[in-house]
Design a protein around this nucleic acid. Sequence first.
DNA 1: CGTTCTAGTTGTATAGTACAACTTGAACTG
DNA 2: CAGTTCAAGTTGTACTATACAACTAGAACG
Lengths: 146, 146
Amino acid sequence: MSAAESAVETIQREMTIFARRARASAGRMHPELSLVSYTLLGHLEERGGCRATDLAAHYALDKSTVSRQVAALERAGLIERRLDPEDHRVQVLHLTDAGQEILAQVTRSRRAAFRERLADWPEEDLVRFAAYLERYNAGPGAADAD
Amino acid sequence: MSAAESAVETIQREMTIFARRARASAGRMHPELSLVSYTLLGHLEERGGCRATDLAAHYALDKSTVSRQVAALERAGLIERRLDPEDHRVQVLHLTDAGQEILAQVTRSRRAAFRERLADWPEEDLVRFAAYLERYNAGPGAADAD
DNA sequence: CGTTCTAGTTGTATAGTACAACTTGAACTG
DNA sequence: CAGTTCAAGTTGTACTATACAACTAGAACG
């Protein structure tokens, strides 16, 4: 096996390990906010509000799934729905103050965990690793799932 | 924000994206074999057989979860249980021929997907990326989840 | 108008998971 | 050696995330 093939093998294996761990620990991290909810809130913050359908398309989730997630987030007071005056079918979702607060908390604590995990990495390696990950995720086959 | 902080931020974000995608696509990849089942079979192959309790400990899963997964894999004819003659509480799990077959198929197809995804990466980058991932997964906080 | 498209909800089913209670066998202890 | 405690696994129950299908409500178009 060439060096390249062996590297691909390692990348596959390590990515699988990571995915499994992330899945296992996602629920435990923040009882308040699953990985999906966190991602949805983050998207809302980034975009400054969007429709449930947009979230579904963006994350390749069924609209029913998003509908229930959104309902839960609204019940928890983290987002609010505003009827689009232009089109009464549409509900534009926005973070509430409480939602921004929680999102910021979770983001801080996730960041702290990563920072600790990466504490003894030289800056040069951090920068290169970050670039590789971005490149990997931006690669072919990714467009439909981002 | 320093370059290192910004890189940590990126790593966090990209790892999260990856985890979400892996989760979403895990089921679709191989209807026969979920990510967890694949991992368990892989572990059995690597170890040449082990106990359900070992799997549970290794992957931080509840023993009941493993019990059901194992039952499903046995029903599917992919593994078999052998009573430990030394201790009749213990069932040592082994891959069947069919199990080795399926595992090899899934491994091949996963490998092909990764290979395609990484097709246009220079070998040097593949090797470095692989090394970073190994280092990340081997890092502190990983021991309990491997 | 009426047909067709779009946004979202609700019904139903499935997978994966955890926790608790239980069964069975092993080991230890007074 | 009898009784207790420990270990491996199974089963009952419940919850979450998910998808697909059927439905409702509103918009657009002809």
